[in-house]
Amino acid sequence: MKLRSLAGRFVVILASVIFMASAVWASEPDAEDASVLENLLGDQAGVAFLEGKFEQGKYIADLDTTLDSSGHFSFVTDEGLRWNIRKPVSTNLRITPNEIVEEQDGEEVMRMDVDEQPMTRAISEVFFAIFGGDWDALEDRFSIRSVQEVSPWRIELEPKDELLKSYLSTIELQGSEYLEVLILSESNGDRTRIQLNDVKAR
């Protein structure tokens, strides 16, 4: 299996989170819905545009240090997600249902077809799951490990698939009114914490 395939796993999580977040901002959570996710994250959103800033801290277990990075993101319904890192290096990622493109200084350095990597396929599926209001599809990929419904709410998700699980242990989502924090815990001990700030929807 191409190693780059593993790269996709992060995008799954990231993209699904962003899309879930956009759904949140567009509507109120409905406490009477059966599904837990739907409970916390609300109905389908018709969000056309979403943007904000992020701060990422990656804790590297064997060095016992944290690597900080920051930048801003934007999401446009027909264009996909843009993840632009500014510190400590500058690079721009564009994720669409069909491919992932990396650009640096205006030049394209990498282009990956969705089907080239095992995991990237999962992105577009999650993407449409969120926007289609298809929470079942999301629950197809992850099982819910724990839920704290009192604000600030916390959900811990665990991948169902063996392959994904071998690299990623859990995903934790936190928020009050909307999604604020995303924590990815890898199976080798590394942990990535992404904080979303100044989020605006249109």
């Binding site: 790269a7 990422q56 990656k58 590297i60 993840w83 890192i85 290096v89 690079t91």
Partner: peptide, 16 residues
């Protein structure tokens, strides 16, 4: 560097 900070970076089998 980009691999380390980017969400879709190449995984590192070994420590830094």
């Amino acid at each position: 560097a980009r691999d380390l900070v980017s969400p879709i970076g190449r995984p590192r089998p070994d420590s830094m």
